[in-house]
Design a binder for these strands. Sequence first.
RNA 1: CGGAGCGUAGCGCAGCCUGGUAGCGCACUUGCUUCGGGAGCAAGGGGUCGGAGGUUCGAAUCCUCUCGCUCCGACCA
Length: 510
Amino acid sequence: MSKRALAITRDQSFPDWYQAIVRDGDMAETSPVRGCMIIKPWGWGVWERIQAELDARIKDTGHENCYFPLFIPMSFIAKEAEHVEGFAKEMAVVTHHRLMNKDGKLVVDPDAKLEEPLIVRPTSETIIGDAFQRWIKSYRDLPLLINQWANVVRWEMRTRLFLRTAEFLWQEGHTAHADRDDAMAETLKMLEVYREFSEGVLAMPVIAGEKPANERFPGADNTYSIEAMMQDGKALQAGTSHYLGTHFAEAQNIQFQNAQGQLTHCHTTSWGVSTRLIGGVIMTHGDDDGLRLPPKIAPRQIVIVPMLREKPEDAELLAYCAELEKQLKAAGIRVLVDAKLTKSAEKRWNWVRRGAPVIVEIGGRDASGGNVTFMRRDALRDGDKIVSHTRTRDEFVSGAQALLDEIQAKLFAEAKARLDGNIVSNITTFDALAEYFGAATSDDEGGVFKGWAKVAWSKPDGAKLDAIAERLKALKLTIRNAPLAQEAIKGTCLFTGEPAKEYVLIARAY
RNA sequence: CGGAGCGUAGCGCAGCCUGGUAGCGCACUUGCUUCGGGAGCAAGGGGUCGGAGGUUCGAAUCCUCUCGCUCCGACCA
């Protein structure tokens, strides 16, 4: 086998491969603060693209951006019972506001204790609800549609870059409505925005559906998610949308006067996606040569590498590249000329690892012949051989956008085929389910691909559901969601033997 | 926080069992030669061996504690 751009393959160890791609793809690194990450310029560029694309969609659906404080009074969190219980175990708390020098050592000043501790927001329902309570008086103020881009902190036991970090970045939408129908429509509308965004921009196919009761957001009546399939067969919850009923409205007195003059509680929603999406993109599109970025989120869609030789001819080569850059920019393409003096081959492989969709290499003969030689990151190799293409410069420029579109489409098609081809739907007994996923301990053996199972169930809740969750847990499985697109149900529940009500997806998950 | 494994140069590793004061590959610097492509030769730079104690004439190596990372469990976007 020929040399790969990464030192480790997916087959050898998927978790190690993931880390290698985050590091060698210049996406992020661990920080001096446990569980927090430093997002490097290339990784941040991807997040900026995600923000730009998603923000436009959030605004198109009538929402306005604003910003609420990082700190939330502890008493706010305490207002909604389920909410407290859900988040209490992972909150960072600020208790003091001053340091002092004691015997030459910097210590927390015991006299500077805050009267009321502040929570570093794990999510903002309560502090935004407090504002909603003041902002909403009349049915004429509704619906109130707010979004914010922010960082949040959840003190996780175990962290993984992008997938689960103590601090992460996200957008959180918060809305208030006059009635259940309107709030539910909003919840599902934003879920659909996420689905379209994930598939259309990230080229990451997902299944949208409702979470079972035991997986709901603390304080929600209904939680919906989009679930993506990673290359190791595990599911990744890539976005969530919650119908919160009137729980927060009642806890925080968010009321309005309706047309009949009666004081009524609002129905609220919240929805969010986070930097976790970047982890999803990596595990959806990455290969053994590194990351492959969908053109729509690549900070640079085309990278031009001049084959510099530190000779006088370099000037001509650079002029040719600059002209090509100008033409591509004019065509609306994000392009970079990598004119660093690093060895050309080294530069090429760095861009392969980073996942630039198109890598152009220009040598003296290309320049004098008016040609462009390039590689597609989505189809880098034929077997072990690197595939490069040559076009005239004009051909290349005029076809560049179409090429990027084709790459975007191909990445999606590849991932879609993997998702569609790896959901088994012929499992009707718990034993068969256990057999399909194998013993719990074999989970991380190299190269063992397990997809998802779609099974019929009777949608029990309470103790019955908890018992099912326990049985699944022994197999390291969870119910991901009940897809919104349901076929006519037939047969009996795999768990209870009762008549089935719907299909749910079962998988190992991140 | 429980179980397992691992921390030696930027990255990947050897050395540890059988203590004698640090090495390999890639990357980096310089020179020469190469040059349609992950080049060759030569010369270099970089590590108080995660940290703190202890045993010892002497510790990367043995002992204790501690911190961090990875995987598994619990928790979760």
